[in-house]
Design a protein around this nucleic acid. Structure first.
Length: 601
RNA sequence: GUGCCCUUAGCUCAGUUGGAUAGAGUGUCUGACUACGAAUCAGAAGGUCGGGGGUUCGAAUCCCUCAGGGCACACCA
């Protein structure tokens, strides 16, 4: 595509008084393939030349035709014709000559590496200890995991941090509840549900008996002051919870470099408070110590509560400073729900006031709520759906479909897991993260249409064709470089026995391309890098998911309408080469989203 | 009450720096497996892009305003 735009600019430049850069900026791709390969909108020229865009388009058409006649049919740029349509000048290139060159590009496609030598810290997942891992936490987990992989693929050095919710007044409450009603045996047998039940009961009883709240806060104060009993109970809750979380992470294929939760920063808090005090930023208000942010139209940021204990903002300040010292990031992403937007604006503002200019490189990556019946899910009210249950249902569904459609598939259990889990992850990543999503079993368990299984199916289809043709197929779980060319083993475009030949053929012409959908496919394959870069710039994995869905649709249309394994060797090899390129992009794209890509499903 | 976010087909959503007749999926109806995998593909139907102003040659996209929904607004995270 880039190449087409470059050529178009070169062709047009002698006839318009515009800089090449300006020209390139104006050029666009026509909305429909029948309209040509590159379009030049004449509206801006119309203003400068004081003539109608239609007139200008017609004139340019004539001029290009003249220039083309002069250059002859084998000029350096294979322009077929230029056509004025409305205020546009549409350029048609000689696809037969062009296709082999585009295909060669697609075959050795690699991602750009704008992140080389730069580090990015991604904080994500961050579930709360002693609470179940609900579908709500899934969002942070899969978005963060995908953003980490996307940045890695672009060359960044990525640090993944699980900022566990393992500190705060809630643990005072949990301890208070345990002391009153807890049963150690029950908890050992069934840790998270039992701990949750205690927590829920605490809030119910506190409605009637407000003194309980005070009791909870008192236990947190003890905990923060290092009280042995409090510490011991807390540690127990943490250990049990982590055991359960790790199982979920294994199933999802997610990992972290650091499980440094909020409690990790306890020791750093005094330093932060001292720094704030020294800079004169701390003022006392209603008994608490706060940083005033009224100059930025924000409510004050509480740093120490009236009882002297820390609050989550304090711990986020300490964490940010610690991480900056430790990792020296280019940027730091906080993948945390949109309901905490104000909190992060406050934290970043306080960092700025402290003189930490790198606060500008911290970015809250918000996402919409996971809702149930249009309402927020709530652990306290027991209105949650457990992620484990969702994943299990999805895997069961995948297994049932396999049993029905492909009973002879080897390693059925593994594939069912890959498909089921993939369906859940993809469903969460395919739309803009900021939208609220209403949880729906029907949607999550749907495997048709714009879904993870659809992309996985298309990938398996590419591998199936290659296998049939005796070409090498991709194996293994994918990886950071899965989309890179397999140049090491002699070139992607190569059948095993006839590598050189197909490469050479590919350099000539592809007369069959007229009317073939392979053209649309190869153009889209070449857009992969742009899609990934856009996803990183916007911290938006859905842009990769969207790209993959479009690629699948284009490839499936091509696959359905035309035969790949035709008798003509040149055509067959070109189509196989395209198929291999699509397969590589799909595999790497799935990897970037956190999905596996089984070769057969 | 104040601030932020959201609103596009019955439902769920795309729509890149403002560009040509606003696109998918799903659901409904109808077709295509003696073909390289039908978890697929094709066709039909379905739209005042929440309403109203404005900027522009041109607005789903930018500005203003109103409405509806969501979230947040100091000792929870």
């Amino acid at each position: 595509m880039e190449m087409l735009f470059q050529w178009a600019a070169q062709l047009l430049q002698p006839h318009v008084q515009l800089e090449e850069a300006e020209l390139l900026r104006l050029l666009e791709r026509p909305p429909k393939p029948e309209l040509g390969d590159v379009a030049f909108p004449c509206f801006t020229l119309a203003k400068m030349w004081r003539r109608s865009p239609q007139q200008i388009a017609a004139e340019l058409q004539a001029r290009l035709a003249g220039a083309q006649a002069e250059a002859g049919s084998d000029g350096p740029i294979p322009l077929l014709k230029a056509e004025a349509a409305g205020g546009y000048l549409n350029l048609f290139f000689d696809r037969a000559r062009l296709f082999p060159r585009l295909l060669a590009q697609a075959a050795k496609l690699t991602l750009p590496r704008p992140g080389a030598g730069k580090r990015v810290v991604v904080e994500f997942s961050s579930p709360n200890i002693a609470k179940p891992f609900g579908v709500g936490h899934l969002r942070s987990t899969v978005i963060g995991h995908s953003l980490a992989r996307i940045h890695e693929a672009l060359g960044y050095d990525v640090v993944r941090i699980n900022h566990l919710g393992d500190w705060g007044t809630q643990f005072g409450k949990e301890i208070a509840a345990y002391k009153r009603w807890g049963d150690a045996e029950k908890i050992k047998a069934n840790p998270i549900p039992e701990l949750l039940a205690l927590y829920v009961r605490f809030h119910e009883e506190a409605e009637k008996n407000p003194a309980l709240e005070e009791e909870g806060r008192a236990w947190f104060k003890k905990l923060e002051e290092g009280d042995a009993e409090a510490r011991e109970l807390w540690q127990w809750f943490v250990d049990e919870s982590l055991k359960a979380f790790r199982k979920t992470y294994d199933l999802l294929g997610v990992d972290f470099d650091h499980y440094t939760g909020e409690s990790f920063y306890t020791d750093h808090i005094p330093k932060v408070v001292e720094a704030l005090r020294e800079k004169g930023l701390l003022v006392q208000s209603e008994g608490a110590w706060v940083v005033d942010l009224s100059d930025m139209d924000m409510p004050p940021c509480i740093v120490l509560k009236a009882d002297g204990t820390s609050i989550y903002a304090t711990r986020d300040l300490a964490a940010a400073i610690y991480r900056h010292e430790q990792f020296g990031f280019e940027k730091m992403l906080y993948v945390v729900g949109a309901e905490q937007t104000l909190h992060f604006r406050q934290v970043f503002a306080v960092l700025k006031k402290m003189g930490h200019d790198w606060a500008d490189r911290c970015e809250h990556v918000p996402f919409g709520l996971m809702q149930m019946d249009g309402k927020k899910m709530s652990t306290r009210k027991g209105r949650v759906i457990f992620l484990e249950e969702v994943l299990q249902e999805a895997v069961d569904r995948a297994a049932a479909i396999i049993a029905e459609k492909n009973p002879d598939l080897p390693d059925k259990e593994t594939v069912a897991r890959q498909i089921g889990v993939g369906a859940v992850i993809f469903h969460d990543l395919k739309t803009h993260r900021i939208h609220n999503v209403n949880f729906s079993w029907e949607e999550v368990l749907n495997f048709d249409g714009e879904t993870g299984p659809y992309v996985q199916y298309t990938y398996a289809r590419t591998q199936s064709v290659l296998r049939k043709a005796g070409w090498p197929t991709e194996a293994g779980p994918g990886g950071p470089d899965a989309g890179a060319c397999c140049a090491a083993d002699g070139g992607c475009c190569a059948g095993p026995a006839e590598g050189e030949r197909s490469q050479e053929l590919a350099l000539e012409t592809a007369p069959w391309i007229a009317g073939s959908k392979a053209w649309d496919v190869v153009l889209h394959v070449l857009e992969f890098g742009k899609a990934v870069e856009r996803a990183a710039e916007n911290s938006e994995p859905s842009q990769v998911a969207r790209y993959l869905l479009d690629l699948c649709q284009l490839y499936n249309r091509f696959y359905h309408d035309e035969r790949i394994l035709v008798d003509d060797a040149a055509e067959r090899d070109a189509k196989l080469c395209l198929t291999a390129a699509v397969g590589r992009v799909l595999r790497q794209g799935l990897y970037l989203l956190g999905l596996e890509a089984p070769a057969q499903i």
